[in-house]
Amino acid sequence: MNVPDLPAELVDLIGQYEFAFLVSIGDLGPHTTPQHPTLTGGSFTITAPGPVTCRNITANPAVTLLWPPSTSDGHALIIDGHATLRDYTLEIAPTLAVLHHTATSTATSRRCADCRRFNLAPPAQLTRLGQLPRTGS
């Protein structure tokens, strides 16, 4: 999969977080592990993922990286992508990214001026990965 470089704003945001949770899906449901993904150009690398993650990726390459907020009122960074396992190294091509505020118990449906959405793959590629509904006939 051709992975273009990420937007500079997104790269800056990623640099503000300490670690991410990698979420993969397997026969038993979601599997979450804390990771330190390395960003190179437009893709992420995770070395030595565990055996459950490897099994899940082999069966279903759709993954999510979630960088939690550092404060209770901060923003989480969520990146969906397509993972490939090569020589016990996970390569993740990001497709969608969202910087999202943390909801509070007193918050009602509010829009955050600091929230951002990044479409990182062409629409045809997103449709193929099942991340956008098909349109037309």
Rank of each mutant, 00 (worst) to 15 (best):
P122S: 08
L99Q: 07
L28R: 15
L39C: 04
L126K: 09
D73M: 09
G50N: 11
T89Y: 09
F19E: 12
L65P: 07
D87K: 13
Q131F: 01
I78C: 03
T135N: 00
R134C: 00
H82D: 04
P49D: 10
A103N: 14
R55K: 15
L65S: 06
G42K: 15
T47R: 14
S43C: 13
H75Q: 14
D27K: 13
D5I: 10
V11G: 12
D87H: 06
V23E: 08
D114A: 14
L77P: 10
T71L: 03
C112H: 11
V63L: 00
G41C: 07
N2C: 05
P30I: 09
V11A: 13
T33S: 13
A59N: 12
A107I: 03
N119Q: 15
N119A: 14
T127M: 03
P69F: 06
G81R: 06
Q16D: 04
T47F: 01
A93E: 02
G41P: 13
D27V: 07
A124P: 00
A103F: 12
H100T: 07
N60M: 11
I92T: 03
G26H: 07
A59W: 03
L120G: 05
R128C: 00
L66A: 09
T84L: 09
T106G: 09
A20T: 06
L39V: 04
L66S: 15
P94W: 01
T102Y: 07
C112I: 08
Y88N: 13
V63E: 00
Q35H: 09
T64C: 05
S109Y: 10
Q16M: 03
C54F: 00
G81V: 03
H82V: 04
I57E: 04
T104W: 13
Q131G: 02
R111T: 01
T33V: 15
T53G: 09
L6K: 12
H101G: 06
D73T: 14
P123G: 01
R117Q: 12
N56V: 02
Q125P: 03
A97Q: 04
G15T: 05
L77G: 06
P7A: 08
I46H: 08
A97M: 09
A113E: 11
L96M: 10
A62L: 07
S24V: 03
S43E: 10
T45A: 14
T71H: 08
A83L: 07
I92C: 02
Q16C: 02
V3Y: 15
P61L: 11
A121F: 00
Q131N: 10
R111N: 08
L65W: 02
A62N: 08
Q35D: 04
D80R: 10
R111V: 01
Y17C: 06
A62K: 12
S72I: 01
G136R: 13
